[in-house]
Design a protein around this nucleic acid. Structure first.
Length: 342
DNA sequence: AATAGATTCAACCGCGAGCCG
DNA sequence: ACGGCTCGCGGTTGAATCTAT
């Protein structure tokens, strides 16, 4: 049985929106709201558009308080650190960047940030066709690795590359002693988001204590309480943005954004990490790192790729278990609030 | 100035989740 | 419990624009 189409495709206009269409949609929504039904909306206002198209146009372009134009360095940092932590959860990342849409961020990542961060290591890999396995794929274990790699999405590979940069033994990233202490809020956020991605249900270290996934989930669910406290403590700080999970405003200044320090992210953004070793050694180091992860550390990599996890949580819509509800509600709250029409 | 190739980004698509009768 | 429907998401496409030759 096929799925019912959301609209009559034959009578629906596609392609770029005209100023007249924009004006119609904007005027109606500003006055009446969506009426809780995007599908019915275009008919009400005489637009020959699909409801989904109207929704997208409103959310990504017409809705008030949207930022257009270049991203700031702080926004770059937030996007990068969240991408590394949770992957392509664009809506979650967008929730941390007021005025930015998931589509914007996705485009910005795909067209600019990704290249900025990965261009270099990508080039080095492209120059060595069999460097990943270092042997004929048909050799012992090689076939398995090949299949495994073929199953990786490009997103997962990108994150792997970032991960490898972070694993560079000479890197700042790999020396916890050098890391500035995260505030509890940031610590919980990063670990909470990683927890959501992890189907292996390993234990988590929160505030130096190893806890079970179940406990981690409870910890994460307390984030809203932390937020409320902080909000009270900074009543005058209108920038708090209430939902600002990353705390870019409530911890402005000296604290790192998300799980990474400004220096770390600058290093990543400027590809400085790749300069730690001469080109040749760097390739070898990358290769060794990869092999090591493939052979020994798979269990530790669950967080960075959906492709490794079981089918129940492999989809992007995996925010569905009972333990995840509290968190996803928190994450989406303000994002959706912005769309709620009176 | 003309052309090809690269880049950007608005818009589309299909899927899964959740709600409701 | 089931099916229909809408919503929201991430991935992808393709027209417009920019850049290099």
């Amino acid at each position: 049985m096929g799925k019912a189409p959301c609209c009559d495709k034959a009578n629906v206009k596609k392609g770029p929106w005209s100023p007249e269409e924009d004006a119609k949609l904007k005027a109606y929504i500003e006055e009446y709201g969506t009426g809780g039904n995007w599908i019915a909306l275009p008919q009400k206002i005489g637009l020959k558009r699909c409801g989904k198209s109207c929704r997208l146009r409103w959310l990504n372009y017409l809705r008030p308080n949207l930022k257009h134009g270049g991203f700031s360095e702080e926004e770059d940092n937030i996007i990068c650190s969240l991408y590394i932590s949770i992957g392509s959860r664009w809506s979650v990342i967008a929730a941390q960047l007021p005025g930015r849409t998931d589509n914007d961020i996705k485009n910005y990542w795909n067209t600019r940030l990704k290249k900025k961060l990965l261009g270099r290591s990508k080039n080095s890999r492209m120059n060595r066709p069999s460097a990943i396995s270092g042997q004929d794929p048909k050799d012992a274990n090689g076939g398995e690795e090949k299949n495994y790699l073929q199953n990786l999405s490009s997103s997962a590979l990108e994150r792997l590359q970032l991960h490898m940069q972070l694993q560079n033994p000479f890197s700042f990233y790999n020396n916890p002693a050098f890391w500035p202490k995260l505030n509890p809020f940031q610590d919980k956020m990063i670990q909470g988001l990683q927890f959501l991605n992890d189907s292996n249900n390993q234990n988590y270290i929160i505030q130096g204590t190893s806890i079970s996934p179940q406990q981690a989930a409870v910890e994460c669910s307390t984030i809203s309480n932390l937020k409320a406290e902080e909000h009270q403590n900074s009543e005058n700080e209108r920038n708090f943005q209430s939902s600002n999970f990353v705390g870019q405003s409530s911890y402005k200044g000296t604290e790192p954004v998300s799980g990474f320090t400004q220096a770390e992210l600058n290093e990543l953004l400027n590809n400085e990490a790749a300069d730690f070793l001469p080109a040749q050694s760097q390739n070898i180091a990358e290769f060794d790192c990869f092999k090591e992860m493939m052979n020994e550390s798979m269990d530790n990599l669950g967080w960075w790729s959906n492709d490794f996890v079981d089918s129940n949580s492999a989809s992007s819509n995996s925010w569905d278990s009972a333990t995840k509800v509290n968190i996803s509600e928190e994450l989406y709250q303000d994002y959706t609030l912005g769309y709620t029409m009176q």
